[in-house]
Computed example of a mutant assay.
Amino acid sequence: MSVDFGQIRRNEHLPARIAAQIGSDIQEGRLKPGDKLPTEHFLAKSLGVSRSVVREAIAQLRNEGLVETRQGVGAFVTERQSRTIRIDEGELFKRDSFRDLFQLRIPLEIEAAGLAAVHYKEADLERIDEALARMTGSEKWTDEGIDADLAFHRAIAEATGNDYFALFIGFIAERISLAIAAARARVELEEIVNVTIDEHVVVRNAIASRNPKAAREAMRAHLLGAASRVDLTLETY
């Protein structure tokens, strides 16, 4: 299956598109350090999307270091010197750049799965299961299913007990969501959704059984499968 990266741009899912729009306002100075973002309710209403979509967009901005969230207060634009990683979204529509980012995902997520199997707490497993339930429910046929897929991977990263895994995997996963959307657009939806769910279940069960070797192998199989579904050949040894 060959993927048209121009098609990915057209099919880019809502959270990434909203984050890119807000990110542009920040980078170009229309939103300044210390400014508070509008509330989730206001953004959802004004943009005509659900609040869960807005939350995903703000999570992406937080992963990029463009905003910080304060419990019960809201999201605020960070000072420029405190900002972390940022990748030009346009670069990811170049096949080589996109492949390189996916290649980076492999060692990070495989290691995260193994560490999660060793270190997870019950609350972590509950978050993994919650995301998996969303993936297997009625949302699986919609963009909400993509959001649930990303939440699954973030929950595993958080279960490592290492905040840096959550930071880097969260950042990469948001961009890899473009590949998920592209894969859904290019093949029989029922086929790809069911295969993806099956792979996630194997990962979840290996982590739940506290078997780091099986968890690493399951995550490796899932990521290579995901890459093949968007016609990417990765180097693995």
Rank of each mutant, 00 (worst) to 15 (best):
D4Q: 03
G6H: 02
Q7H: 05
R10T: 07
N11T: 10
N11C: 04
P15F: 00
R17K: 11
A19R: 06
Q21F: 05
Q21R: 13
I22G: 02
D25Q: 15
D25I: 04
P33Q: 01
P38G: 02
T39S: 15
F42T: 15
A44H: 05
S46Q: 05
G48K: 09
G48M: 05
S50W: 01
V53K: 01
V53R: 00
A57S: 06
I58R: 12
A59T: 07
N63D: 14
N63K: 14
E64L: 09
T69D: 11
R70L: 11
R70G: 02
V77L: 02
Q81F: 14
R83H: 06
I85C: 11
R86S: 14
D88F: 13
L92N: 07
K94H: 14
S97T: 04
F98G: 05
F98P: 08
R99T: 10
L104G: 04
L104Q: 03
L108V: 05
E109I: 01
E109T: 02
I110E: 14
I110F: 03
I110S: 06
A113E: 03
L115A: 08
A116C: 09
A116T: 07
V118A: 03
Y120R: 09
E122C: 02
D124R: 07
D124A: 06
I128Q: 04
E130L: 14
A131W: 02
A131V: 06
L132G: 01
T136S: 13
T142S: 12
T142M: 03
T142K: 09
T142Y: 03
E144P: 00
G145H: 00
D149P: 02
D149V: 03
A151P: 04
H153W: 05
R154Y: 02
R154D: 09
E158C: 09
A159R: 02
A159S: 06
T160D: 06
G161S: 12
G161E: 11
N162Q: 12
F165E: 11
A166W: 09
A166H: 12
F171W: 08
A173R: 09
E174N: 14
L178K: 13
A179V: 05
A183T: 05
A183F: 04
A185T: 01
V187G: 14
L189K: 14
L189P: 08
I192Y: 10
H200E: 05
H200Q: 08
V201D: 00
V202W: 05
V203M: 12
V203K: 10
V203D: 06
S209L: 01
A214R: 10
E217H: 08
E217Q: 13
A218F: 08
A218P: 10
A218T: 06
M219Y: 09
A221G: 09
G225D: 06
A226S: 13
A226E: 09
A227V: 11
R229K: 10
V230N: 06
L232N: 04
L232T: 03
E235I: 08
E235S: 06
E235A: 09
Y237F: 04
